[in-house]
Every structure is written in C-alpha cells, then in structure tokens.
Amino acid sequence: MKYNTVIFDLDGTLLNTLEDLQDSVNFALESFNYPTRNYEEIRSFVGNGVKDLVTKAVPKGTDEETTSKCLQIFKEHYKINMQNKTAPYDGIIDLLKQLNSKGVRLGIVSNKFDLAVKDLNKYYFDNLIPVAIGERENVRKKPAPDTVLTAMDELGSYKETSIYVGDSGSDMITAQNAGIKSIGVTWGFRDANSLKESGADFLIDSPSQILDIIEGEF
C-alpha cells in the first residue's frame, strides 16, 4: 500500500452541505432585511470558513459589527439545522468502509467551525473517521498546513504515506503546504480546471478511485 493515511476535506468532498448552508445564510440575511443569496452564489462563496462565507454574503459595504452579528445568527441557526438536507455523496460511505477494512487511517480537516465538523462527522460517519478537526481560535486555517499536520499527528502518520483529498484549489495548496500529495475530486464545489491549476497530484471522478491511488495503481 502506497498510502496508509487519507485526510479529507468535508464540504464538497465527503458531504454535500450547500443547501443547509444556503438556508442558514439566508436566515441570517433576512434577519437584517438583506437580499438573500441563491445556490450558485453560496457555492462560489464557500471554502474558506463561515466567517468568509457570511462576509461575502452580506451586501458590499456592510460594517464589521453588523457582519459579526450576522455571522453569529448564521452559526446559531446552522448548529440546529445542519442535517436537514446535507448528505454524503454517492459512494462515500462504501469507500470509508473499504478503507477501514484495509486499516487505512482516516481524518477530516475543514475550515468549517470545529463544533460543526465534529457533530457532522459523528452524525454521518460515526466510527468510520476517528479524527475530525475544524476551525479553532489560535490555529491557522487552510491553506495553512496546521490542521492537516495536527490530524496526521493525532493519527500517528507520516508525510510520505499520507494524502489529502479535497474539492478546491485551497485544498490542493493546503496539501502542498503540508508536504503531502493531493487528490482533487470533481464532484464538489469547484471544477477540474481550478484543481489542476492549483497543483492537484491526482484528479478523480468517483470515490472508489481513491482505493486505486492508495494501492499505487492509479
């Protein structure tokens, strides 16, 4: 086996979370009588944490204090509504079970806030992924390598045998910054070209292809 550790991004990689994110963003925007955002707008805003998402969603020129209040409303709403429409992508659960059966070490690293990452992991992937790390204070978020390196440390893994899986250019750069190989998935929130341009080592169209990559057969 070429890789014994696979670390995943969450949104757009393991879970399609866009509709729940859209609902919570629009709930927060409506609280201030701001215009709501459509699905494609939310899709283009995600990837750098919820603060960045809300900052992009509020009208241009919104002051920092109001944006902060809007973010808080979003977080409170999302915390109790993040499992309404969210679901794993086709083939993900089967993939995780097969990786587990091979003894592959698994982790999640996301720019979503830490509580949500842990709750979503427990709800959708209970017992399949032991390490899940989200955005926390005093820890640099992706594309800084900090959270990926923390996950590897918790899993007892090494750079040479670890690989990072994500759906965005930021994920590919995160892997480079961490000194590990990257897999770009084409079913997520960004297109194949942006993944390629950001230096993806592998591009895949279905979760099962990860099995070939870790065996060195891709």
Score class of each variant (00 low, 15 high):
N38W: 00
A116Y: 14
G107H: 07
G49E: 01
L155C: 09
E160L: 02
L128S: 05
A57W: 04
I73C: 09
D11G: 14
N38M: 02
I214S: 10
E40Q: 14
I173W: 01
A116E: 02
I213G: 12
L71R: 09
M172W: 02
Q209K: 15
I108Q: 04
D153I: 00
N138G: 09
I93L: 14
Y78D: 07
A175S: 13
V117F: 08
F218R: 15
K159M: 10
L195F: 10
I204R: 07
G61K: 02
G199Y: 06
Y3E: 04
K97T: 11
I7N: 04
L115V: 15
S110H: 05
D20T: 12
I129G: 00
P88C: 06
I92P: 02
D63V: 11
I93D: 12
E135L: 12
L106I: 04
L99E: 10
N33R: 12
K122M: 11
N81L: 06
A132L: 07
F113G: 04
V148D: 00
A87H: 15
T174F: 06
G103N: 13
K196D: 11
L211E: 08
L195A: 12
V185N: 01
T66G: 06
E40N: 15
A28P: 08
F202A: 09
F125V: 02
Y124I: 03
D9G: 08
S168W: 02
G61H: 10
N111R: 00
D119M: 13
S44V: 02
M82V: 06
L195T: 02
A132F: 01
I204H: 04
V6H: 03
L155K: 12
K122P: 04
N127M: 00
V131D: 10
S168G: 11
D94E: 15
I93N: 05
G179M: 03
Q22N: 14
E154N: 13
H77P: 00
G216L: 09
F125G: 00
A57Q: 06
L96G: 01
G179T: 08
D212H: 14
K196L: 12
S162N: 10
L71W: 03
V58A: 02
D212Q: 14
G103R: 07
G61S: 09
K112I: 04
A28L: 05
Y78R: 00
A144H: 15
F113D: 10
N16R: 01
Q83N: 13
T55L: 13
G199I: 08
A175R: 00
Y78P: 08
K141E: 00
D153E: 15
K51Q: 13
I183F: 04
E30Q: 15
A151Q: 04
E76P: 09
Y3S: 10
T5C: 11
S157E: 07
K2Q: 13
V104W: 03
